[in-house]
Amino acid sequence: MSDFKVLTYTSKDYKIWNDFLDASKNGTFLCHRDFMEYHKDRFQDQSYLIFKKDKLVAIFPANKSNHILYSHQGLTYGGLIVSKETSFKTVLKAFKSLLETLQSSGIEELILKPSPRMYHTHPSDEMEYLLFKLQAELIRKDLTLAIDTSQPIKITASNRKRGLKKAIKQGLIIKEETDLDLFWNQILIPNLVEKHGVTPVHTLEEITYLKTKFPNKIRQFSVYKDNEIVAGTTVFETGKVAHAQYISANNLKQELGSLDMLFHHLINEVYKDKAYFDFGVCSENSGKQINSGLQSWKESFGASSISHDFYSVFPKNHILLNDVLI
């Protein structure tokens, strides 16, 4: 009889889930129940807790649609989240138990999107090996652009430096704000609608709610000229990474150098002690194409490409894990 049991998350597990997440080596606040549940009306949550005897050893944020289980579609990443002390053997048996449970409950496919390595506080590649053994199919690969702050930062475009000089000359001021209304309503939403015909993933009401729940992890930095907002970014801050979730500026960004000044300040001052500054993805069409202009712009700050992989796993393939340990 297995020492492992897999339980479906319910509201009574709120505290044990979040406490485990906070002590994990590959989870971030995006997998906190308060973050996951702001859009609970859009997804059929089917998250799991995995125990070895009576000890919680892994959690799996997920939602269900028909006979497919997804690494939660409302999150950028997720996957199997484990503690710093969890051994490879425990990860193996925990994930195998999860797959067995999925198969017995009628789940035919698992779409998995593990968190990129830069978000791990400790090495956590156990799942990379298990996915290889399970003959998982790589179905999507996004590219995100990030700066490794432990290395000398090389600004590759001279116009970044010129932009910073312009911003200083123009007397621009950077403010950290608790209120996101001005950035959302005057900069971000108008830009996205005009240029792409879309609105932000988060509504103003949603991002405001999330900021009240995570005031030190969701931060708003705005740029002003003569008391008028001209640019800004909303940053999601995790243990090792500062991620620019939203970036936008008005039509005078080239003349003012507003974004050049903003990111120079964030990278070299506010987040200089973070391991990475993440500018976000530049891939489109489910990872099949790269927005070359966006890629070049982010690279010009000294950022380099980091992949974010998505996998398809068939739960029935759990038998392929039987011979891993010898």
Rank of each mutant, 00 (worst) to 15 (best):
S283Q: 07
N251T: 10
D323H: 15
C31N: 06
H32V: 12
K161G: 03
P215S: 03
K240V: 08
E109W: 08
S2L: 12
I319P: 04
A167S: 07
K161E: 06
I319W: 05
R42I: 10
F221Y: 15
S83F: 11
K225Y: 05
Y271K: 05
K93R: 09
S24H: 07
W17Y: 11
D260R: 00
G79A: 13
G27T: 07
D13A: 11
A231I: 02
S11P: 15
L134V: 03
N66D: 04
E100P: 00
G163E: 05
D273T: 13
N250H: 03
I153A: 04
N159D: 07
S11M: 12
A242Y: 01
I326S: 11
F51N: 08
H67R: 13
T86Q: 08
S104P: 05
F277S: 10
M118E: 10
I168V: 11
L75P: 01
P152C: 14
D278W: 08
K213G: 08
T233I: 15
S222G: 01
E37A: 07
K195G: 07
S47D: 06
N185S: 13
S248I: 02
D3H: 09
D273G: 02
F29T: 02
D142M: 01
E206G: 10
E205Q: 14
L192W: 01
Q73C: 01
L188M: 14
V6Y: 06
G197Y: 04
F214W: 09
F183H: 08
L98W: 12
V82H: 02
F314Y: 07
K154L: 10
T90D: 15
D34Y: 12
Y209S: 15
H72D: 10
R33L: 09
T101R: 01
G78Y: 11
K96S: 09
E85V: 06
Y70G: 01
T238M: 03
I173Q: 13
I326F: 12
K64G: 04
Q170L: 10
Y70P: 00
I139C: 02
F263K: 04
A167G: 09
I81D: 02
N191I: 08
Q46I: 09
P215W: 00
W17N: 09
L56R: 05
R160E: 00
F236N: 04
V241G: 04
S71Y: 00
S300M: 05
I50Q: 03
